[in-house]
Amino acid sequence: MEKFTTVKSVAAPLLENAIDTDVIFPARFLLLLDREGLGRYAFSERRNGPEPFVLDTPPYDTAKILVTGENFGTGSSREQAVWTIADLGIRCVIARSFGEIFFANCFKNGVLPVRLGGDDMAAVERAAEAAEEITIDLEAQSIRLSSGREIRFDIEPNLKRLLLLGLDEVGMILAEDGDAIKAFEARRKADQPWMSIGIEKLHALAEEQDKNG
């Protein structure tokens, strides 16, 4: 995954509350098999609607930052909602709040979700609407506006590291806890032998019905 260090870009203002996963990625596209190229289905209804959509309107069509309202990404657990946004080139979403699962999914896909409130959020919204360039510095946990104002944001250390190093979660788990997993499995095998099904048994079951069906 691409490392997240600093991102400098205009920020697209989508200043609405509760943009849900169905708006971000409509359910009918869930039958698609790949995760590459999903950007073209992002916000499908909005982009084909009567009003011009902000992410299609220069200079925001190249924005790497999205600024939105409360509860962004609420709704279903579909990870496509993050993939589609990442595929559009968005690296950071700044919102007043997020849907729980969407928020967690962001970190697994190299997207930084930032929660802001009050005056800080208002300043970012103004900068977005004025199409000013803003800079996100993850290491420093800061957002720099062109006015020179610097806004701090919070992020959990583990998640910050994941983004900074561009680690995928699997790589990180195996690197940090590979041995602990092995030890756990050995213990489980000794203490709870009934947990193991035996792969032969599973395949036999699948094949048995093949004959019948």
């Binding site: 792969i199 599973l202 395949h203 079951l205 699948a206 019905q209 093949d210 019948n212 069906g213």
Partner: peptide, 12 residues
């Protein structure tokens, strides 16, 4: 190597 329960089988 994962067991797949076919659509026309009794375990589906």
């Amino acid at each position: 190597g994962i067991a797949y329960m076919p659509m026309d089988g009794e375990r589906h």
